[in-house]
């Protein structure tokens, strides 16, 4: 029997995207084991997202490091850019400027999605630091705290502030997280954190209208001090 339609009669749409910004403290104090473990964690994050057949085409990862503030890799799905950058530690900790850059590139990306008819999920911002803001403007820091809070409150952004080590400024991280306490990494368990993050991103990428994607709270115990 002849069939009415075939695959050629269909259209292609881009996979809905999950924009993820990793805003990572790569200041001089991260030199040594911390930056090595961070690089291993980011690499395993890339590998796990790539291994997920939906997230590979859906998750778009952008890495912003500080200090100095720079975009290590702009938003890209892992089928296009499967290799993570090698992060190096140097400089101070201009956290406000780094968050500003993260949110600015995120806004640019969302505009591109809209201009090109690409659906997208609520963006994620992961902010990791091992110290106090240093070398940046306190006014910019305050402005970005307000900006993130406003986005989180209006459900336009999911934010994960993570403290690394005993010197992490949890009070400042708390300011970026109006709805939940910031979490502190157990030792240097970057790999465990990024494994949890990739699973969370995968769940978001598979959600459909009406789905409420809840946080895997049980999974936090694998990497966070609770």
């Amino acid at each position: 029997m002849d069939r009415i339609i075939e695959f050629d009669d269909l259209l292609d749409n881009p996979t809905p995207r999950v924009p993820v910004v990793l805003c990572l403290d790569c200041s001089g104090s991260m030199t040594g084991a911390p930056i090595e473990e961070l690089n291993r964690g980011v690499k395993s994050f890339y590998e796990e997202v790539y291994a997920d057949e939906i997230a590979r085409y859906s998750a778009e990862i952008c890495i912003v490091t500080f200090g100095p503030v720079q975009v290590e890799t702009d938003f890209q799905t892992l089928d296009v850019q499967p290799n993570p950058p090698i992060l190096r530690a140097s400089g101070l900790t201009p956290m406000g400027e780094a968050v500003k850059k993260s949110l600015d590139v995120l806004e640019e990306r969302k505009k591109k999605y809209r201009d090109n008819g690409v659906d997208y999920y609520q963006p994620w911002l992961v902010l990791m630091t091992d110290g106090y803001p240093e070398g940046g403007s306190s006014q910019i820091l305050d402005e970005q705290v307000a900006r993130v809070s406003q986005m989180v409150q209006s459900r336009k952004l999911t934010v994960f502030p993570i403290g690394i080590g005993e010197r992490a400024d949890m009070a400042t991280l708390q300011r970026f997280s109006p709805n939940r306490l910031p979490l502190k990494l157990q030792g240097l368990k970057f790999k465990e954190f990024f494994a949890w993050l990739s699973k969370s991103v995968s769940r978001v990428s598979q959600s459909t209208p009406g789905d409420k994607v809840t946080l895997d709270v049980a999974g936090l115990s694998g990497w966070a001090e609770i």
Binding site: L10, L11, D12, N13, N116, G117, V118
Partner: peptide, 12 residues
């Protein structure tokens, strides 16, 4: 997802 092209709202 495969019958509507979202960038220009064209049906397949």
């Amino acid at each position: 997802a495969s019958l509507l092209r979202k960038c220009d709202m064209r049906l397949a």
